[in-house]
Design a binder for these strands. Structure first.
Lengths: 156, 156
DNA sequence: AGTGAAACTCTGCGCCT
DNA sequence: AGGCGCAGAGTTTCACT
């Protein structure tokens, strides 16, 4: 499912991951291609699904969600129905940024953005009310050393 | 540090988090404001740092990085100098998406996007070569149930 | 504060190399 | 394939409410 990207595609994607508002003219000059060539490449990268979306990234602290929490969850039951329920429940919770099924087949990891401890507790209560949980433990982020949506495009 | 956002700001941010390419005209109609009012609000939200950036989100699998790995790290030493070294090293590694200092003051969590196990091992080797690590354990993501950059704006 | 219109920039697509 | 250019869309500024 890996698309074949050449040097130009990689340069375009590198720039667009940093700033999606870059005018085609500027982008073209920066990577050594005409606006038009850039435009056509971007179109096909979007069509191929390499570029999934262009979005605005917000500062969690400035919208009242300064606390990042990771929850480690052990499934109550190990069947497809439980996973489906769990997936639906977490997808429906907007403060949940990521949900991952980890190696081991029984452990799940959730990353969520909340206002404070009380807000975390609300999230926790909501979650356990909707899906039976085997075991839940939470770790709170004291300091965000790095956080990026930029992916490297050296090889590909 | 929380900005005061009204109903309109919240609607604008909700839309822009989903699609930053939305024309001002459409955005205005959708939330019940003129293009111009929207534009000025967006400008001040950017100036206030609420909107941090507008970026293109890529599909990791399509650029050859289908494997997500979480690394749990215990610091070798517990001092400011070690943390500084660790922060610099991880920030310089482009496959590292997030680095978090967790409650407990000795544990760090890294999220990285790699090509495969061999690629992970390269990352691991690079990291331990640059910073002395107390203990490192890795968990691999088998299934990404949810992954979003969208933050909720109900209260704020 | 928000609105409307005008000026300007950028993009999207055709055509040519 | 890449580059040029125009028509239309989108953005920014201005004057007014």
């Amino acid at each position: 499912m890996t698309s074949n990207l050449d040097e130009f595609d990689r340069k375009i994607l590198t720039e667009l991951q940093r700033n999606a508002d870059l005018p085609l003219e500027t982008l073209g000059q920066r990577i050594g291609l005409s606006r038009n060539a850039c435009w056509r490449r971007i179109r096909s990268l979007e069509a191929a699904g390499v570029i999934r979306a262009r979005v605005a990234l917000l500062d969690p602290a400035r919208i009242g969600l300064p606390l990042t929490v990771f929850m480690q969850i052990r499934a109550a039951l190990h069947d497809a129905d439980w996973l489906d329920k769990f997936a639906r429940a977490t997808r429906a919770l907007p403060e949940v940024q990521g949900v991952y099924r980890m190696s081991g087949d029984l452990d799940y990891l959730i990353r969520a953005q909340v206002a404070d401890m009380a807000d975390y507790d609300r999230l926790y209560q909501t979650l356990i009310a909707r899906v039976p949980m085997g075991d839940v433990s939470a770790s709170f982020v004291m300091e965000e050393i790095k956080h990026s949506t930029e992916l490297p495009l050296s090889r590909a």
